[in-house]
Design a protein around this nucleic acid. Structure first.
Lengths: 209, 209
DNA sequence: GTCTATACATGGATAGAC
DNA sequence: GTCTATCCATGTATAGAC
């Protein structure tokens, strides 16, 4: 026997992914969950609070599916490959779609902010772990602010995910272009000591930290 | 004397930016425009079509403000600086906010797709022009797919803009991190012929195009 | 805990007077 | 072109029976 709370949370996640925030009403969610509409208010008090709870739970659940794979990534190419995979499976019904909808809604509804921020932070933490491991062995590791980069990577990913929704071809091309760029990072990492010294001094002259 | 159509379009843009897509109803927009609610349907047929038209016109107007500055950018640092500026002024009331809302809505409402796609393409074109100019003088220019990169940069920017709405500190940190990374590009560009040759062969071995 | 019924607000859209 | 009035669907939320 499945608890009604869980049915409603699942329903909310499905509706958010399939119909977006504008479609996420108590009636529609309850119908998707196969329960009565009044139960939304009995269990959660309001639609916002249901969405908030769904955002939290959904992110945790989805992240759990990838956590193991995140820990096995050991090159930038592998990280990008995992990103592509995530992109393919999370799009349409996954957590990134839900987070994107909630993120857009949170811009004008302060009540959604905490849950979205928490959800994002969970993903940030995961990516941070990978980046830290990848840069640990790099001689130029101190050039990167890992937490900052993790935030940049993840929110850029959300932007790309949204873009994919209106132009799949363009989004694929954008991802390909980033993949080409990523080669640069590994290449720079693989430079010999002479070139590396030149690069470092160049950076110092450029005013980087 | 201002035409009612224009009043409604301005009203729609303001409402989209201030209250998001969920708040963008015919009544609210008409009220913001100071005109009667029925005029939305008389002039545009439906709310969707008003939003669509507002998206197009708003993007053109806003882009016109920056077009000149885009053409004067001649380094990556300058491009990033312009991005920061754009970020600061467009956030809260600007076109990026509007596009982000429409983009989120378009994920589940096909009627919004064409207008959003057009709006995005306008920005892409602008950024493409800059990137093409910046990479033209680079010896490693053929490593980049400029149109793809422009799409990646712009949609990443939208993701960051949305993230800023729920965590201003985190977003600032993400931008700083990207700024550090961008130094790498100019540094690579500034390498001497010897280091450059090494890099190029490394890339060939890595399997890049 | 769950259901029915219901109150009440908001939103899309149209008809018809001016 | 613009306004008033109105219809009807949808949405939030609560009361009360079971």
């Amino acid at each position: 026997m499945v608890a009604t709370r869980d049915l409603l949370i699942d329903g909310a996640l499905r509706v958010l992914a399939e119909q977006g925030l504008t479609g996420a009403s108590a009636r529609v969610i309850a119908s998707a969950a196969g329960v009565n509409q009044a139960l939304v208010f009995y269990h959660f008090g309001s639609v916002d609070e249901l969405l908030t709870e769904a955002c939290r739970r959904g992110t945790e659940q989805r992240l759990a599916l990838y956590r193991e794979r995140f820990t096995t990534v050991s090159t930038f190419a592998q990280l990008l490959a995992l990103g592509r995979d995530l992109h393919a499976t999370e799009r349409a019904e996954g957590n990134v779609t839900v987070l994107a909808q909630m993120l857009a809604g949170a811009q004008t509804d302060p009540r959604l902010v905490p849950a979205v921020a928490e959800g994002l932070n969970l993903w940030f933490g995961e990516i941070e772990g990978v980046l830290r491991r990848l840069t640990a062995t790099m001689p130029l590791a101190d050039l990167f602010d890992v937490p900052g980069l993790a935030r940049a990577v993840a929110s850029a990913f959300i932007g790309l995910e949204l873009y994919e929704g209106v132009d799949a071809v363009g989004a694929a091309r954008a991802l390909d272009a980033l993949e080409q760029l990523s080669v640069l990072v590994e290449v720079v990492d693989g430079l010999g000591p002479v070139a590396r010294r030149a690069l470092r001094s160049k950076i110092r002259r450029a005013g980087a930290p």
